[in-house]
């Protein structure tokens, strides 16, 4: 077994129905994209979970570094003026 090469890892995304986003549901190992697609269909759509599948080689995903979460995401936390509720307008205007 040790001289076998490892099967590549694939991330699986399912779209529950048209009009919605594909959503990450899990991962699996397969030799190529065709086999990854077959396995994803067998494992992740046994109960009508979706009508479309994406498989993406995990090695193609570039993730942000959790150690830099502060500098990446904290700057947005004090910018309430980016939300509509920050602005006062007269009630008489109604919905805007």
């Amino acid at each position: 077994m040790s001289n076998e090469q490892n099967m590549p890892l694939w991330e699986v995304f399912i779209r529950p129905r048209t009009g919605l986003h594909h959503k990450h549901v899990g991962s699996l190992h397969a030799a190529d994209s065709t086999m990854a697609m077959h396995a994803a269909r067998d494992v992740y759509t046994r109960r009508e979970e979706g009508d479309s599948i994406w498989v993406v080689a995990s090695s193609h995903i570039h993730a942000s570094d959790p150690k830099r979460s502060g500098e990446n995401f904290d700057p947005a936390s004090d910018k309430v003026y980016r939300h509509p509720s920050f602005y006062d307008i007269p009630d008489e205007v109604g919905h805007m």
Partner: peptide, 16 residues
């Protein structure tokens, strides 16, 4: 199961 499946894994990877 693992040993009997070895040729399938090998063939799939060779094809890829």
């Amino acid at each position: 199961a693992w040993d009997d499946g070895a040729w399938v894994r090998e063939a799939a990877q060779a094809y890829a």
